[in-house]
């Protein structure tokens, strides 16, 4: 069975991407971080960037990026990954530089850093994983938490009169002149995964072509902190989350047409 494929099937059509380290992840069952990691690693492989990439990990479940993606990684303080990435990219413009950030990191404490990195047209790529909660610290309310969503710090549900509204980062960043590419994707169906891969490829391509700042927002799940089975968590993404956070490409620069 082992030799020449499996059970007579010679062509391996899916295996672990080369840039994805062969270890068990710390992610909870059904967490979509794993899917985002796979897509990231596949895209690094596709562009043959493994040996010229510097990643920047942020604070949250996403921090262990350096255990899973087989590239050089710097760890940033909470929310500061786009600023650290700026420092790396300015020093090494010929390296591929990305950040991988959660929604608490990017959309709350790090809003200033990501907005200004985008506005400078910083030639970096941001992978932004939005699961509407602070996963690692135990499911507190995030700026992306849906109205009415119960979390450990919004036990009666998020109320817009008190906490405002879930923030739409892909749309917000698309308004900035320096942003070359901004898209929101999900990974809850095979078709969505295909589109997510395409978006990450585009975002990478923007950096390679020096077009400016690129960001892909992933609508992700947090079954543990949502108190849902993984399949129900996926249904939530397909339902209320995608309704409020519409999937799509919000900005795509065609050429380096800086004003």
């Amino acid at each position: 069975m082992k030799e020449k494929g499996k059970g007579g099937f010679g062509k391996n059509v899916y295996r672990r991407p080369e840039s994805l380290v062969d270890v068990k992840t710390h992610f909870c069952p059904g967490c979509h971080h794993g899917i985002a990691h796979k897509i990231l690693a596949e895209t690094i492989d596709r562009f043959c960037l493994r040996e010229k990439t510097v990643g920047v990990a942020c604070v949250g479940c996403s921090v262990f990026l350096y255990d899973y993606i087989d590239v050089d990684v710097a760890e940033a303080p909470h929310g500061r990954a786009p600023a650290v990435a700026t420092g790396v990219k300015r020093a090494q413009p010929d390296r591929f530089v990305f950040t991988y950030q959660g929604d608490g990191d990017l959309a709350a404490i790090g809003t200033s850093e990501v907005i200004h990195a985008a506005n400078r047209g910083e030639n970096i790529t941001v992978i932004f994983v939005n699961n509407t909660t602070y996963g690692m610290t135990g499911g507190q309310m995030a700026p992306t938490t849906m109205l009415g969503q119960k979390t450990s710090t919004s036990p009666y549900g998020r109320d817009f009169r008190k906490d405002g509204y879930p923030i739409k980062m892909a749309e917000l960043l698309a308004t900035l002149e320096g942003t070359a590419y901004s898209a929101r994707v999900a990974t809850s169906t095979p078709a969505q995964i295909r589109k997510a891969k395409e978006a990450v490829r585009k975002a990478f391509d923007m950096q390679i072509k020096e077009m400016g700042f690129s960001i892909v927002e992933f609508l992700s799940t947090c079954p543990t902190n949502w108190g849902m089975k993984p399949i129900d968590a996926q249904k939530r993404v397909l339902g209320e989350m995608s309704e409020y956070f519409p999937l799509g490409v919000y900005k795509e620069r065609k050429q380096a047409d800086f004003l």
Binding site: V84, V88, R90, S112, H116
Partner: peptide, 26 residues
């Protein structure tokens, strides 16, 4: 060389962190 004005001192020190991590004097 490279001079860059940051949006805050919080961003500044993290630019510094990134360039230092790249092995450059900053």
């Amino acid at each position: 060389g490279t001079f860059l004005q940051a949006e805050s001192e919080v961003a500044t020190i993290n630019f510094i962190l990134g360039t230092s991590a790249s092995g450059r004097r900053v």
